[in-house]
Design a binder for these strands. Structure first.
Lengths: 254, 254
DNA sequence: ATCCTAACTTTATGCCATATAGAAACTGCC
DNA sequence: GGCAGTTTCTATATGGCATAAAGTTAGGAT
């Protein structure tokens, strides 16, 4: 069944590698390396993860890792899947809209728990067991909608992309706020004042109105639960409204 | 007016730096450096841009750049703004929905013209003249909707985030397809077949159904105009439907 | 006891951003 | 005409990075 033509990267994601009986026995294994790397990333972000640093933590040279993870790129994929964890189990009592809301909010909290996940590039379709589990959960929620497979995929992708994007922004904002004194450009108030001086009122009338509206003078308190942040909810609700319209049109066809 | 308390980074974005009359005259200037860096990025992506390479192209040492751009991070910001170009002028005849569609499609084509723009991290609010112009254009389109400033901002952000995300995916997919023989994991057919062997039918029933649906067997022809790609249009239409509902509720209040 | 083999180490290459210090080239002033 | 001041650019160096190539080590199988 799990035949030989499965690429080694997939095998490692699903932990299907077997220790060989011959040769020097390994001190390391994929799981150990990836967990160490995730620890480092949780502390220092993606930039804090280097083959050397991971290896040093394990009391081993950098090159030793290559036996088990192939390349740094692959290590990052393994880290991504591991840190993704498992989605909440869909509640069959809920309708699809509540189900997707719960799903998206859980995803948002995942990025909050491991902000470095939002730094990673996107690798096409889900490949590892945890990513597949997230996809499975969303598909289960969408099952009663009667959408076609392509539509379901597009919908999930749309939602996941939104959560990723808004997580990134929130994380960047928080990081910027921490360095406020160093880098005042990004401070909201300073932003409005500085740009206000540069913007030609005739060429940028709307921007000018926006900057003088006082919107940037408010100090937004960082919400305790990022999944309840009003800015996050705004986009989520728009998205769900748009998806709802699609579901309605599908339902009225049938 | 353009007072001294404007940070140097902003001044450079708006090309407000003045050559001093004393001292050794500069061979370089910001515009020249940034244009050279953009050329490099157009050819080789963000990874192809290093201070050394940019400097060599200009017949100068890497350190010479630092007089003009401060740091590589700042150079990337300058590149981003320059390559963003100008948005299409909003047509006052169009309603907001057509206007946003045009805007989003133009943004999509921008990422197609400079794919490396999609690789860059997000830097909070728009700071440079071109980015401000994009924002201004979107605000002008939204002007008749009667939305509040915060809603307009959230809406634009939602849309821009969507275009960025789907551009990234399309670019990654195309890049993966180019390296198909090397990296078959991401080839769509191979994806379905390989994952099919790993996935437990009981634990992942929906994924299993999806993989056996034949959806991944189709070969999607790459569209000539990315802004007309059906996958892109799908998300855009959902988003606009969601925004339309918000506008309606605002209108019925008034 | 010896061989085989996989796991790990050593060493080296060629990148990278940028700190520091100094040389070079111009203007304005005497 | 030449010196001072100022700015630009160069030379050099540091410490980091991923990973290629080749060598060493340690245990299981025979």
């Amino acid at each position: 069944m799990a035949a030989d033509d499965v690429p080694i990267e997939l095998k490692r994601l699903w932990r299907l590698t077997t220790r060989s009986r011959t040769g020097r026995p390994a001190e390391l294994d994929v799981e150990l390396i990836v967990r160490t790397a995730v620890d480092l990333a949780d502390r220092d972000g993606v930039a804090g993860v280097s083959m050397t640093k991971v290896a040093n933590r394990l009391g081993v040279t950098a090159m030793a890792l290559y036996t088990h993870v192939g390349s740094k790129e692959h290590l990052l994929e393994l880290m991504q899947d591991l840190a993704s964890g498992l989605p909440p189990k869909p509640d069959p009592e809920q309708d699809w809209r509540d189900g997707l809301t719960v799903w998206a909010q859980a995803l948002r909290r995942m990025y909050d728990a491991h902000p470095w996940l939002a730094e990673l590039p996107i690798h096409g379709p889900p490949l590892g067991p945890h990513q597949v589990a997230w996809m499975e959960a969303a598909l289960q929620v969408l099952e009663p909608t009667g959408l076609e497979w392509g539509e379901k995929l597009n919908t999930i992708n749309l939602l996941a992309g939104y959560v990723l994007h808004s997580s990134r922004q929130a994380i960047d904002l928080a990081a910027g706020r921490q360095a406020r004194k160093v880098d005042r450009v990004r401070d909201e108030r300073a932003y409005g004042r500085a740009l206000g001086k540069l913007i030609d009122r005739d060429r940028f009338p709307q921007m000018n109105a926006l900057l003088t509206s006082g919107l940037f003078e408010r100090t937004a308190p960082p919400p305790s639960d990022p999944a309840e942040d009003p800015d996050f909810r705004f986009g989520l609700d728009r998205l769900l409204d748009g998806i709802a319209k699609l579901c309605q049109s599908r339902q009225s066809e049938a």
